[in-house]
């Protein structure tokens, strides 16, 4: 398995506060990598660095190197919009646009210049099928997406991210706002998606990390404490702090 994202000596500051300290990590493709750690440990910040969503926050300073498919993502020639097309994102709170289901999915492809009804129809159906929600909402494509349930909205958001044909999917606690049944569906979906995509998921829920991820990275106070096979991390952690966290001694 080759690494699709490699991170070297990554540091990040919000103003004068350092949020990430010398992160080194390689993320393999067609696998699920889980980022765990207590709130404020930098895991979400790290995730958002991978598709440069942190660029939007004023006062952010970044040093170090992040390579996606061998390309330094902070290099001056890199178009951040193309980077985000390749590295899609699903947010903590489902955030469908206040438009129809169809327009939500078609938004990305349209933005990237795809026209023609047949083509778009095809993309919409394929994305919704990939996100395992086609059967539920195929009759409601013209209805406003805000009318769907929370779990459906989140799967719609996943479908929307898939519609631009990304290579990597970043998921920022995608199930934290959902009920257990919807959470189960999203987890199932994530496991199915790794056939085609690479997934990096931030989660608060350690069972979830165990259930779906292949690798787990444990963050604490802006540092990457430990990174390795999920099984290894959760059975024989090397670092004492990892052990304390996964056994529930703090968090």
């Amino acid at each position: 398995m080759s690494d699709i994202i490699t991170v070297k000596d990554l540091c990040l500051w919000y103003g004068s506060a350092q949020a990430l300290k010398d992160i080194n990590i390689n993320i393999p493709e067609h696998a699920i990598t889980a980022l765990i750690g207590p709130s404020g440990c930098g895991k979400s910040t790290f995730l958002k660095t991978l598709n440069r969503m942190n660029d939007l926050i004023p006062g952010v300073k970044i040093t170090g190197e992040v390579r996606y498919a061998g390309q330094d993502i902070f290099a001056p020639g890199v178009d951040v919009n193309m980077l985000r097309k390749d590295i899609g994102m699903v947010f903590q709170k489902p955030n469908p646009f206040p438009m129809s289901v169809y327009d939500n999915i078609a938004y990305g492809p349209r933005t990237h210049g795809i026209k023609g009804k047949a083509k778009l129809d095809d993309i919409v159906e394929r994305s919704l099928r990939d996100a395992a929600i086609w059967d539920e909402i195929k009759d409601r494509l013209k209805k406003n997406a805000l009318g769907l349930s929370g779990g459906q909205q989140q799967r719609l958001c996943i479908a929307r991210a898939l519609a631009v044909e990304p290579q990597v999917l970043l998921m920022d606690e995608p199930t934290s706002a959902l009920d257990p049944i919807s959470t189960g569906k999203i987890e199932e979906l994530a496991s199915a998606l790794k056939e085609k995509y690479t997934i990096v998921i931030v989660t608060h829920n350690m069972q979830q990390a165990v259930r779906i991820s292949d690798q787990t990275a444990f963050f604490l106070l802006g540092e990457l404490v430990e990174y390795g096979d999920t099984e290894t991390i959760f059975s024989v952690p090397v670092d004492k702090r990892t052990e304390d966290y996964i056994t529930g001694r703090f968090g």
Partner: peptide, 11 residues
């Protein structure tokens, strides 16, 4: 969130 979602899609 709407704007974030759009930016994350590469708009």
């Amino acid at each position: 969130e709407y704007e974030d979602a759009s930016l994350a899609l590469g708009a």
